[in-house]
């Protein structure tokens, strides 16, 4: 690997990391809102969230990326008469956010529903509102239980971010493939695998540490 190739590799890795971190950060907030909608007593909200989750978990992420990047401008054109394509990185992030939001919503919902009903009753008996009880009592207790499935979802998005290469975004996998094709040296693909393994290992270690730290009270 010469210096130029190393630079290209590094920039691909950086793009993958950016895609993953941005998507997981915003996706987590989306997932939380969706989860609260899913357990809401208002039927309409419930139905809407259910349909959303049904769609995004039931169709391939690859297809969702294509829809966001190629499909949405076409829809906008039909409505406003003017096609505006999203920048590649934004489109990639958006697709990943929408997808991980659906998965995280189900993870969060299961977490919230696993907390004993007596906790909500105790909070209410102490005069707390639903919102106060949710954010001060229920959700903090779910964190420990959520870390393993959340860690799993993080790893999935880290790897599946490679799918955005289909719209031409040069992240780690695409970069490695281009280098391999350009030089005829397939070892670049294994380098990429090494970087992915390195990143997934680090994230797993961090999440394991977090899980230990949250185990004090159980």
């Amino acid at each position: 690997m010469n210096i130029n190739q190393i630079k290209m590799f590094a920039s691909g890795t950086l793009t993958t990391l950016e895609l993953t971190l941005v998507s997981m950060f915003i996706g987590t907030m989306l997932g939380l809102v969706l989860a609260l909608g899913r357990i809401s007593k208002i039927k309409a909200i419930n139905r809407i969230v259910w349909t959303y989750v049904w769609f995004f978990r039931g169709t391939p992420l690859l297809l969702q990326i294509m829809i966001v990047y190629y499909g949405v401008p076409l829809i906008l054109k039909d409505i406003f008469g003017r096609a505006t394509a999203l920048p590649m990185f934004i489109a990639g992030c958006l697709a990943l956010i929408l997808n991980t939001g659906a998965y995280l919503a189900e993870i969060f919902r299961a977490g919230i529903e696993s907390i004993d009903k007596g906790q909500m009753e105790a909070a209410k008996a102490l005069g707390m509102s639903y919102r106060q009880a949710m954010f001060k009592v229920i959700i903090p207790q779910t964190i420990k239980r959520l870390i393993p499935p959340y860690s799993n979802e993080f790893t999935m998005i880290l790897k599946d971010s490679s799918l955005v290469s289909v719209i031409g975004l040069t992240e780690l996998a695409r970069q490695a493939n281009q280098l391999a094709n350009g030089t005829g040296n397939w070892v670049f693909l294994f380098y990429a695998a090494g970087v992915y393994l390195f990143l997934t290992t680090i994230s797993t270690v961090i999440f394991n540490k977090l899980e230990k730290r949250y185990s004090v009270y159980l």
Binding site: G118, A122, Q141
Partner: peptide
Amino acid sequence: VAMCGELGMVFQRFNLFPHK
């Protein structure tokens, strides 16, 4: 809320907040 302030409740299964 004001009314709940007048009433304190103790449950059969304690229902303490385990994370506190």
